[in-house]
Nucleic acid binder design. Structure first.
Lengths: 253, 253
DNA sequence: CCCGTTTCTATCGTATGACTTTATCCGGGA
DNA sequence: TCCCGGATAAAGTCATACGATAGAAACGGG
């Protein structure tokens, strides 16, 4: 596990002590080690559990409470919030999910979201892109094509490609979904065997077709092709997930 | 301005001191009173500005930094982050936008997002809803129909209607967009003249048609009708915005 | 005169202890 | 049985001190 996720859009400073505490608590919460409703260690007792001051601990809790992960109340204590309260689209929360086991349902849900959002984003990008936007998207595509499959620069270029498309929509709220999309892509790339060259080539072609539609400023075409890209990626990811979960069942999905 | 937004999904406790500080800072940031890149008051100096302890102030900053609004660094100070770093889909951040002036571009962008997401959500809801989900959606619709137009219970029922549809999708990440949708609806309802009965009736019919499609479990129909609902709402809202911004220009839009 | 290095220092980060406020729990009284 | 009120445990707030970081200025060698 432990994919090296670069700091893209993450707000938590891992160098600082409170940041380490927040990270540690968050991972425990998201993996389910600290189930919803469970009590976090008392602010006074924690001296014995982890040796940090109340100050650092409290700041970590404040950070997490802003994302809906925990809820603190006098006398009751600080409790893990129910999952419905979590802000699952928050970049940090998504990053923390990488530390947990790959949850197939969660990945499916994220792909579903991608499928709803990314084609529309591609349409807007095709309609509204500036020349600078296009340069950025093209540069990202070149980064994908000119680096070895599944190497880190290639992955980063893939993420940059999708992020640049969101940026070209000129719709800030919509752009806030870019981290969710990138997290999904990272998951799927992480799952793939590094020697799966067939998929990589197919994916590259998918990307090139999207880029081409954006160059032509053809919104409908861009949307359709982005749909195809996401579906292809979903299918290959599901195949890998099925293989992982149950190596015998190669027929399913 | 100052619409009374109820606490739906908001993580910040306004009873606590740090919460008030966070709220105050956030509003200053979002309205632009504290522009991006500007320095927040020094943690030592603030004793004179607002009379709170460093502790409370720092916890407020931690809360805001988790949402990308500010960024603190030793020696440099704590700065307002650029808008691209803000998590605009965070329920708190959205709520704070209500304190700022109505920004037409922002509302347009949110409607655009609605238009991409809500029809798909309605489709899923129609396909996956349980009987309990349906009951909840129906109850919300009744709440809209049986209360006076634009009264608070009616508005809440409207929000509940859309939220229940998201809940029925069984897709937690997707559900995290419900607050953004609800915020948009609140804005548009807030803008409407309370005597605009024509629009209210039309909107009610739109909602009923969506509900009907979900009852029938017809996904495509639900998506199409939700599309219609959002577009109707967008058009009437844009008309109102145009009227507000420039009362002479009634032809535009 | 330029540029790298060192030192200085402003600011955030962390630690600690005391006190305040809140809300739950529980027991006593109507 | 119900309501009220005190005891109490936990988070919330405050003040103070010290540590750590990184920007900036001073310094010195080339």
């Amino acid at each position: 596990m432990q994919l090296h996720v670069h700091a893209r859009a993450t707000r938590l400073n891992p160098d600082r002590l409170f940041g380490q505490v927040a990270h540690r608590l968050a991972v425990a919460i998201i993996t389910g080690a600290s189930p919803a409703g469970s009590l976090l260690p008392n602010e006074d007792d924690l001296k014995d559990e982890i040796s940090v001051s109340r100050t650092a601990y409290r700041e970590a809790v404040k950070f997490l409470s802003g994302k809906g992960l925990v809820e603190a109340r006098p006398k009751s204590g600080t409790r893990v919030a129910p999952r419905e309260a979590w802000n699952l689209l928050d970049p940090d929360v998504l990053a923390w999910h990488f530390k947990a086991d790959p949850n197939e349902k969660f990945i499916r849900d994220l792909f579903e979201l991608r499928l709803f959002v990314e084609p529309s984003a591609a349409r807007l990008a095709a309609q509204r892109r500036s020349d600078a936007d296009l340069k950025r998207i093209e540069a990202a595509f070149r980064g994908m094509a000119e680096n070895p499959p599944y190497a880190e620069p290639t992955v980063n270029a893939d993420l940059a490609f999708h992020e640049a498309i969101f940026a070209a929509t000129r719709n800030p709220p919509l752009q806030c979904l870019a981290p969710a999309v990138c997290a999904t892509i990272q998951w799927s790339l992480f799952l793939k065997a590094p020697d799966d060259e067939f998929f990589f080539t197919a994916s590259l072609i998918d990307h090139e077709r999207v880029l081409d539609a954006i160059v032509q400023r053809d919104g409908d075409l861009a949307a359709a092709r982005m749909s195809g890209l996401v579906i292809d990626s979903l299918n290959s990811t599901l195949r890998l997930l099925a293989g992982r979960a149950d190596p015998n069942a190669s027929k399913t999905a």
